[in-house]
Amino acid sequence: MNQQLDPLKTEALAALDAVTNREQLDSWRVKYLGKKSAILAVLKSLGSLPVEERKVVGAQANQLKNAFEGLLKEKEACLAGSASGQQSSGVLPDITLPGKPVNLGHIHPITRVMYELGEIFTSMGFEIVEGPEVEWDYYNFEALNIPKEHPARDSMQTFWVDAPPSEKGWEMLLRTHTSPMQIRVMEKQKPPLRIVVPGRVFRYEATDATHIHMFHQIEGLAIDKGITMADLKGSLYEFSRRFFGPDRRVRFRCDFFPFVEPGVEMAVECAICRGSGCRLCGQSGWIEILGAGMVHPRVLEAGGIDPEEYSGFAFGMGIERIPLLRYGIDDIRLFYSNDLRFLRQF
C-alpha cells in the first residue's frame, strides 16, 4: 500500500473508535473525508503520477475512501441508537401490549380433515373425484348389489326426493354414502383406476350427540389386474400409519357390506387406552375407522368391468368421527351449528 495511506488508515480507525458523540463524529468526517482530508489530497495528486502507479494508488485510495464512508455510516447508526435509548429511557414501549390484530379466519374442521386425507391418498396415487349429492337409487343401491327390500338398506335409511322417476324408472334420493361414485367412475373410465371420493352423505336418522342426518365420507377405489386383499391391507395400513401415526396398531376383521366380498373392517388402537379398553372405545380397545373389501363381482359388472380380468378394493370412511376423537368433541351437531365459538377453535 501507498506509504501515505497505510498509516492514515490506522490513525483514522483509532480516532473513530474514540468518537462518542455526533460532534466528534462530525470532526472525524471533516478530517478524514472532508475537502482538506489526506485522502482527497492523494486523489487530487493522482494526475502527477506515472500511469502505472496512478492506477494502483487510485484504486487503493478509492477503496479506503469507501471504507471510511461505510464506517462513518455504521458509527452514525450506532450513535443514533444509543441516543434514542438514552433520551427515551422512561418511555420505552410496553412490549407486552397486544399487537395490532390481524384477523385470520378458520377453515371448518371437516374441511381440514378432508384436505389431510386427500393429501395422503393423492400421494399414494389416488385421484380425487367428486360426485352428485342427489342421486338415483340405481347408483346408490341396485348397482352396488343392494337390491330392493334387502335388509342392508335398513342401516341406510334414506331421504327420498319428491321428484318424478327417471326414464329408466330410477327414483331420486340423497345419497346415503359416497359409494355411488364407484359405479359412475367405472362407467366413465377404463381400469386401472385409483380414486378417492370425498363428499357429503345423508341418512334418515334421529339426531343426537353422536348421530346426525348429514355427514361426510371419503370413498376409495382401486381396480387393476391382480389387485389382492394384501394390497388392500397394505394400502390402508399405510394410510393409518401416516394419518394416525406409526405407533397405533391396526386391526383388520371380517365385516359385511353388500358391495364387497370379502368384507373388511379396519380399526386402530384406541388412542386413550392403547388397547386395554376404556369408555371412549366401548371397552374394546379399538376404534372402528372404516369399512372396506374386495369389490364385489356384481359391482364390477354393473360398472362394465369384467371381474375375471380385473379385481379391486374399495373402502369408505366416515369423517366426523375423526375430529370428534382427535379434539375430544362431545357433540357431533356442533359441526353444523355454524357457531363461531366452536369454529374459531380449529
Binding site: 386401472p192 386383499m229 394390497d231 391391507k233 397394505g234 373388511v264
Partner: peptide
C-alpha cells in the same frame, strides 16, 4: 385376516385427469 400379508400397492399409478375445481 391376519394370515394375509400387507402389501403396498405396487402397480403403476393410473393416468389421472386433473380436476382444477379442487
Amino acid at each position: 385376516y391376519d394370515t394375509i400379508p400387507l402389501n403396498m400397492l405396487d402397480k403403476a399409478i393410473p393416468n389421472q385427469t386433473p380436476n382444477p375445481m379442487l
